[in-house]
């Protein structure tokens, strides 16, 4: 049952013209699944999600979302296509309060806004209790929750997440990743970039491995998890021991 929501077809992309970071990368993400992208530092993982979000220009190839061509979309029009993007760092407005952050994300919701705000606050009790606090004062994990809540505000069908667990304590990282997984139960598809390979592979359905801006391999996450060769070659020899 190949129900691809997102299809990246052999794209070449980079920040500066003539200096591509991605060389013909292809991938698919299926509906209601978590697709994770892993690979060593500098592999182009973040660049790939930024290219999908329209933040890095794509010079060749195409990106399709639900069969609509979204190659080089304007980032501010992602929501109209049912896509949300959670950047790696600086993904909330620190000087605004939590409520203001959410209201900003909800501002095109019209009359449904207040109801949606209430739903989001119910979904994230930790945020409800601190609504009037400046977002900059939140802990690392809470900031990620807020960022995810802001992404959900536009009711996306696909969420792109760039290393949501980076810089978090192991416990907070686990919470954020579990939240990510739980979103798929409502039919949302997730494309996740992760450094935290072990945890990521365990919650993901499908996995792509990038190195030096190119596809290396891909497969079912559960199969790659036990694959010693893959671990040694593409993850800098890091062992993926179960239970670590």
């Amino acid at each position: 049952m190949d129900d691809a929501v997102l299809e990246v077809k052999s794209i070449t992309a980079g920040y500066v013209p003539d200096l591509p970071i991605l060389h013909g990368v292809s991938m698919k993400a299926n509906r209601g699944e978590v697709t994770v992208i892993i690979g060593p530092n500098g592999a182009g993982k973040s660049t790939l999600v930024k290219a999908i979000a329209g933040l890095v220009p794509v010079s060749e190839g195409a990106i399709l979302h639900e069969t609509v061509d979204i190659t080089n979309i304007r980032p501010d029009q992602m929501a109209m296509h049912g896509i949300a993007y959670v950047p790696q760092i600086d993904n909330i407005f620190r000087s605004l309060t939590i409520r203001q952050n959410l209201e900003l994300a909800l501002r095109h919701s019209g009359k449904e806004g207040p109801a949606k705000l209430a739903t989001l606050l119910d979904q994230f009790p930790a945020l409800r209790d601190k609504q009037t606090a400046r977002a900059g004062s939140l802990s690392g994990g809470q900031k990620q929750f807020l960022a995810v809540a802001m992404a959900l505000a536009t009711s996306p069908r696909l969420i792109l997440m760039d290393e949501p667990s980076a810089g978090l304590s192991p416990k907070a990282a686990q919470e954020v990743l579990e939240l990510t997984k739980s979103l798929t139960e409502a039919g949302v598809s997730i494309l996740l970039v992760e450094q935290n390979v072990n945890q990521a592979l365990r919650l993901a359905d499908h996995c792509y491995i990038l190195a030096e801006g190119s596809n290396q391999t891909d497969g079912k996450a559960s199969e790659l998890l036990g694959n010693q060769v893959v671990a040694d070659i593409y993850l800098g020899g890091r062992r993926l021991r179960a239970g670590q």
Binding site: A53, L55, R74, P75, D76, Q77, M78, A79, Y85, P87, D90, N91, I92, F93, R94, S95, L96, L104, A105, R107, H108, M150, T154
Partner: peptide, 10 residues
């Protein structure tokens, strides 16, 4: 505060 994040937020 953050122009590129603002853009991502529509």
């Amino acid at each position: 505060e953050n122009p590129s994040l603002a853009q991502v937020n529509g």
